[in-house]
């Protein structure tokens, strides 16, 4: 979080984390394509020739003045591929909130669990208590026939009741903005508590 008192800006960082091909970039692309141009910056994507995120995607959203303050949300994704572990940790640095994008397909469960554990490990290495960072879990790809049930996903990922979980089909935009609003609300309420 960066507070610029002269410009009365509140800059907050939200990271979309999750295993490879779970739909992190798809979330950001949908947000970019469905947000009024005056509310968003450019979508920056650092990707390979095969269209896979190599470092991060970045998008800034600005919602105008609220009670004289200008909240700005910097959205990042991490690269999901196993071999980009170092990049994931770097992007998590300074995160005020995390959206964990899980792939609902049954055969991806191990990847989801491993990715969530790794994320908590990286946060600890960065000196951040993983349980104190606002977290929203998005169960993506709900339209696929092999999608596991929500209660199964919750239980496999060992998510307690206090962690909001939302269902989505990011390719069609279903659940994308609900996820974004939920994490923003959580981050802002965490800022109010901790400032």
């Amino acid at each position: 979080m960066f507070i610029n008192r002269r410009l009365r800006e509140l800059n907050l960082k939200i990271v979309y984390y999750g295993p490879a091909l779970s739909g992190k970039t798809t979330n950001l692309v949908y947000i970019y394509n469905h947000t009024r141009p005056e509310l968003r910056g450019d979508l920056i994507s650092l990707k390979t020739r095969e269209d896979r995120t190599i470092f991060f995607d970045y998008l800034q959203l600005e919602l105008g003045q609220i009670k004289g303050l200008k909240p700005k949300f910097n959205l990042y994704t991490v690269p999901g591929q196993v071999y980009y572990a170092a990049s994931r940790k770097l992007v998590l640095q300074g995160a005020d909130g995390v959206v964990f994008v899980a792939d609902s397909q049954t055969y991806r469960m191990v990847d989801n669990v491993t990715s969530l554990q790794d994320m908590r490990g990286y946060l600890r290495e960065l000196g951040i208590d993983p349980w104190s960072v606002p977290l929203v879990v998005q169960f993506n790809k709900r339209d696929l026939p092999d999608a596991a049930g929500v209660s199964t996903l919750r239980s496999l990922l060992r998510l307690n009741r206090s962690i909001p979980c939302l269902e989505s089909v990011a390719t069609e935009g279903a659940g994308v903005f609900d996820t974004l609003k939920t994490i923003i609300n959580l981050v802002v309420s965490s800022v109010q508590k901790n400032i």
């Binding site: 507070i3 008192r5 009365r8 509140l10 919602l63 105008g64 609220i66 009670k67 004289g68 303050l69 909240p71 974004l180 609003k181 923003i184 609300n185 802002v188 309420s189 800022v191 109010q192 400032i195």
Partner: peptide, 16 residues
């Protein structure tokens, strides 16, 4: 910062 009170969260939610 002045303005970052309880109302702020609610106003932000409606703005979203």
């Amino acid at each position: 910062p002045v303005g970052l009170d309880e109302d702020f969260g609610q106003l932000l939610a409606s703005e979203m």
